[in-house]
Design a protein around this nucleic acid. Structure first.
Lengths: 248, 248
DNA sequence: AAGTGGTCTAGACCACACC
DNA sequence: GTGTGGTCTAGACCACTTC
């Protein structure tokens, strides 16, 4: 690996990427100890503080575990503990996402589609079709970006989707009016993650800021999984509330 | 304000506390610009990097907004957007929290009570009684601390609670066996926050790591709010799953 | 004792925002 | 242009873990 100085990409981000690649390729496995910071600095020809900045980002992202006096270790693949809530009644996806903001008399967000791109990634949930990825940012009335979303859909089922999204319509509106597809909630999951550099940029926060990650699948009328979505919300701006009936 | 060097408390934490106090006292109000980093460094007699470390923590915690080239500003009180889920049936708090881990045949966590202390704080939700605060840490079978919890209860209603918790019993067990109180879910909320220094220490992560914050109230048989709880879970280890019935 | 990460300094240059 | 935060360096000392 070689570092490119003055390339516009900070050195510590390049180091971070390098370490991530090594972890993803298996060169560095879970439980392995990283070389000491002084050694990494020497090997890369950078200052130790620069190394520390890279390692700090990885630590907040949960990819490494730092143990003072002992070393920095590749984190084990997290054993994710899924907490299942009781099944909820299936509701129409678009309508109920607005209905959730009961106190408002209109949608408090402006959604702007940033890009519609072909994606070679496939999502098992949606089958083997080539996917189209839609990226958008939601902004409050006062102009703060607070949500960034990614949607994946079958490119085969929704040909020419990008043309439907150029006039500022939301994805769900386009799917209903141009393709006659109405969507319903399939499942949702909630967790907490650190903002990457790109997400931090879009949401106007510093990298590492806690975001609430909401992933899920929307299904069509026949129950077929149709849209996979991944939404990140500023953790300090959103709160999911579960109320329990106290009549029992 | 004066800084104490070599006091065991890092300088940047002292700066952080000082800025927080000024924000909480109203001396620095929402939207106000902080003095430039160079000015803060000069005024406090520390290096600019030390100031930056303090400001970085505040930024990840959402207390300040950093704008490159323009300044650092006190964040506005976040307009929290509450997303209400449909009401769920009230269930017994202890039983269903274990039942949520359906795949397991036993509770996968060990809960250790760290402290039981009187607290002059009051929680409106629980009434005017003086409160007792219980702190605990939950550990997985492999020994990883993954949850830290705080509970607040009426000290008047549960006198001598600390004596009931010394033998390793869980709070709910103690309340049932020693006080005859069974608890039920009232409400819960979910959001994402940054780990403070203390939480980071308890959960073996670096400060600023995203945690899932779950707050709520448990009620007794009569529906009376009885326990306020605040639980922080490692964001990379927990995932809440909501399933929707697809039979409709 | 040796090695690790944690904190802190002094100084430099750069990119961006605002006037 | 001036001022702001963003990045980076060289060097130092400390606290903790491990042997």
């Amino acid at each position: 690996m070689h570092l490119r100085r003055h390339s516009g990409v900070p050195l510590y981000r390049q180091l971070e990427s390098d370490l991530l690649e090594r972890m993803d390729s298996g060169e560095l496995g879970p439980g392995d100890r990283l070389p000491p910071e002084t050694e990494l600095a020497r090997r890369w020809g950078v200052n130790r503080l620069t190394v520390r900045q890279a390692v700090g980002e990885l630590a907040r992202a949960g990819r490494v575990t730092v143990r003072r006096g002992s070393g920095t270790f590749v984190a084990h693949r997290p054993l994710v503990i899924a907490v299942d809530l009781p099944p909820l009644p299936m509701t129409e996806a678009e309508r109920s996402s607005s209905a959730a903001f009961a106190a408002q008399d209109h949608d408090p967000f402006t959604e702007v589609v940033l890009s519609v791109t072909d994606d070679d990634r496939t999502v098992a949930e949606l089958g083997p079709d080539p996917l189209v990825r839609v990226e958008s940012v939601h902004t409050t009335e006062s102009g703060d970006p607070v949500i960034c979303s990614r949607y994946w859909l079958s490119g085969r089922r929704f040909p020419g989707l990008s043309g439907s999204l150029t006039d500022g319509r939301s994805l769900y509106t386009a799917l209903r009016t141009d393709f006659g597809t109405r969507l319903w909630y399939g499942w949702r999951s909630l967790s907490a993650v650190a903002a990457t550099a790109g997400e931090a940029d879009a949401l106007d926060v510093v990298p590492g800021t806690p975001l609430m990650l909401r992933e899920g699948v929307n299904v069509d009328e026949t129950g077929h999984p149709t849209v996979f979505l991944s939404r990140r919300m500023r953790g300090d701006r959103f709160r999911y509330v579960l109320r329990y009936d106290t009549d029992g």
